[in-house]
């Protein structure tokens, strides 16, 4: 049960030496199980199912936590590998029962086609420009708003926080017709400005929650000290709080980016003409009623997922420390 309470920083509990070397015994037992898998694979007409299952059981015997994490990692990543696999299939084999990740006759044809036959780059650029603008403005709006919630106990503060939560409760389906009507009446159809404003306003509530949680963990003494030194409140916020909040600001940027990058429902209502489409509309069109090109769709999916994955990986150190909905007492 040590997993329950064994933080990385805690020195390992002293093990009572019972005269046996358990790690080594487990290593040999695990290796034996894996070897059995190898034997069975060879015996059973090279059925690699054996080595995979028994190999994993061997790992479970040897290092159980690694076995569990490896198992879950596979669950997380396998569907992604499948998308890559579909994108590499030759035209005729899109519907196939093949389980191999690199399909037979792998080709990058679909990747070439998505760029040459579709205006894919244009879609990506549209999305990117909207997304970056939304993320930047969203962070600024949320950063100052959250500061107000964190540092002042003004009348309306508590209802305000609950109100932010309430905005998350509105069923998306009920927004479509009103947004359509508003957009049409304001003449914003096909206009990315309307879309950006809608995205910013939907991203702000959650962003404020995260940032407020993070500001709460920063002692107010720091700003007070700065204000004694002659800064005004906003200068203290700018010079002290914002730099200290880099992790949470990155997370908020990341979330806003992800939300705007992949949004579909509102974009579908607002953007009618293919010249202003975002990639989610374009890719959806590839597998709609009119045309079903799974290869191109998969290739496009791989391309649009890469930037988000890179962003996530790049900021993953902040992901753990920046996502504070409520501070842990320390």
């Amino acid at each position: 049960m040590s997993v329950l309470t064994q933080p990385a920083s805690l020195p390992p509990a002293r093990k009572i030496d019972r005269g046996r070397n358990w790690p080594q015994i487990r290593m040999y037992a695990g290796a034996a199980v894996a070897a059995l898998g190898l034997v069975l694979t060879v015996v059973d007409q090279m059925n690699i199912g054996w080595i995979i299952i028994l190999g994993w059981l061997g790992l479970l015997v040897w290092k159980q936590w690694h076995a569990i994490l490896a198992f879950y990692s596979v669950i997380s990543i396998y569907p992604v590998l499948r998308v890559i696999s579909v994108s590499l299939r030759p035209g005729s084999g899109l519907l196939s029962r093949d389980l191999a990740i690199i399909p037979t006759g792998a080709t990058i044809e679909s990747y070439v086609k998505i760029f040459t036959e579709e205006t894919f780059l244009h879609w990506v650029w549209n999305t990117l420009s909207i997304t970056l603008a939304v993320s930047a403005v969203g962070v600024v709006v949320a950063a100052t708003g959250a500061y107000a919630f964190s540092r002042w106990r003004f009348p309306g503060r508590r209802p305000g926080l609950i109100f932010l939560l309430t905005t998350q409760m509105i069923p998306a389906g009920m927004m479509i017709i009103p947004i359509y009507v508003i957009v049409a009446q304001l003449g914003l159809t096909d206009n990315i400005i309307g879309l950006m404003l809608a995205y910013i306003s939907t991203a702000v509530p959650f962003s404020i929650w995260i940032l407020k949680g993070y500001y709460d963990t920063i002692p107010p003494d720091l700003e007070e000290a700065a204000m004694v030194d002659g800064c005004n409140r906003m200068e203290a916020f700018w010079r002290i709080i914002l730099p200290l909040s880099t992790p949470a600001l990155s997370i908020v940027f990341l979330f806003n980016f992800l939300a705007a990058w992949s949004e579909f429902l509102v974009a579908k209502v607002v953007l009618k003409s293919p010249t202003v489409w975002t990639w989610s509309l374009g890719l959806n069109d590839l597998i709609g009623t009119f045309n079903t090109d799974w290869g191109k769709y998969a290739a496009g999916s791989v391309f649009v997922t890469i930037p988000v994955l890179l962003l996530f990986t790049w900021q993953s150190k902040y992901l753990i420390s920046g996502l504070t909905l409520g501070g842990v007492k320390s």
């Binding site: 359509y180 009507v181 957009v183 049409a184």
Partner: peptide, 8 residues
């Protein structure tokens, strides 16, 4: 929806 909004 367009008819409801009166445009588009």
């Amino acid at each position: 929806a367009a008819a409801l909004a009166g445009s588009g």
